[in-house]
Design a protein around this nucleic acid. Structure first.
Lengths: 144, 144
DNA sequence: CTAACTGCAAAGCGTTTGCGATGAG
DNA sequence: CTCATCGCAAACGCTTTGCAGTTAG
């Protein structure tokens, strides 16, 4: 339901930036908009192919790269040597990866964000970005 | 001066673990021990070659991987799609990367470490690892 | 119409690996 | 001696790219 809204937002942003809206770009935009996980390129390609099998993986690579450069999506690297993508959302968040299942949990912690700025500041730097992933195992006690 | 101490520590650890101490392993161990930066494999290979040009890069790859598995070195990925290595030191630290120069500054912040545990805990997870890098630009005001 | 985009297949890059030769224990 | 390790070169997985054909604006 919300997907349509986000989808048209992506298309609108592309038009605002003067990008040609090809059929392929619409498909990739739609796939990324409706993704609720963090798919790698292969997976994005798979989902696109289900919509239109004529799309090539080279185009998917080019398109996600373009979207990232335009700030429409974020690229992540969760340590498996392949890029994962997620649509840019208004609220910043970081990720906790379940090392047993590979599940990715998003979280947001203002104290953490603030602390990072303070640390950078104390080293004489202005923080312009960060990468932060937590790796954890589900606590036994929680199942009780 | 301190290098010799660390070097013999690496060799001793290898022997403790029953690893054959080949000439190549000693060279890689020495190079990593004396490195004060975070060299990638190509760079480690270069430095090894200056000591003994007969070493092959395949052996360097195999050796850093072995050392990492044995806990002698840590592997990092600072976003340039190649692994960087640094000798394991007793005190844990994270990294701030100067986005202009590529310089890597190490820092240690207990509050940050603790906060990560708390966040993981609040999500129902036990923290088993983390990846964290800050990216920053040198503040103007510091030059004054 | 034409500049931008696409599909294809080849190449690029960091990394791993099969193999026969070498060397540590 | 014997098995782990080595050097070499081929292969690997992910990603990028040159080119000729296609398409949005």
């Amino acid at each position: 339901m919300e997907e349509n809204i986000r989808d048209s937002v992506i298309e609108k942003m592309c038009e605002d930036k003067g990008l040609k809206m090809t059929e392929q770009r619409r498909i990739v935009a739609r796939v990324l908009s409706s993704a609720e996980d963090h798919p790698d390129v292969e997976e994005v390609y798979k989902r696109c192919s289900e919509i239109d099998e004529r799309i090539s993986i080279a185009t998917v690579y080019r398109t996600v790269k373009l979207f990232e450069a335009e700030g429409l999506v974020h690229k992540h690297d969760f340590g498996d040597s392949k890029a994962r993508y997620e649509i840019s959302s208004s609220c910043h968040h970081d990720h906790l990866i379940d090392v047993n299942t590979g599940e990715v949990i998003e979280f947001n912690n203002e104290t953490l964000e603030e602390l990072q700025k303070v640390i950078a500041d104390s080293l004489g730097y202005e923080l312009v970005g960060h990468r932060m992933e937590l790796y954890g195992v589900l606590k036994e006690t929680k199942k009780k």
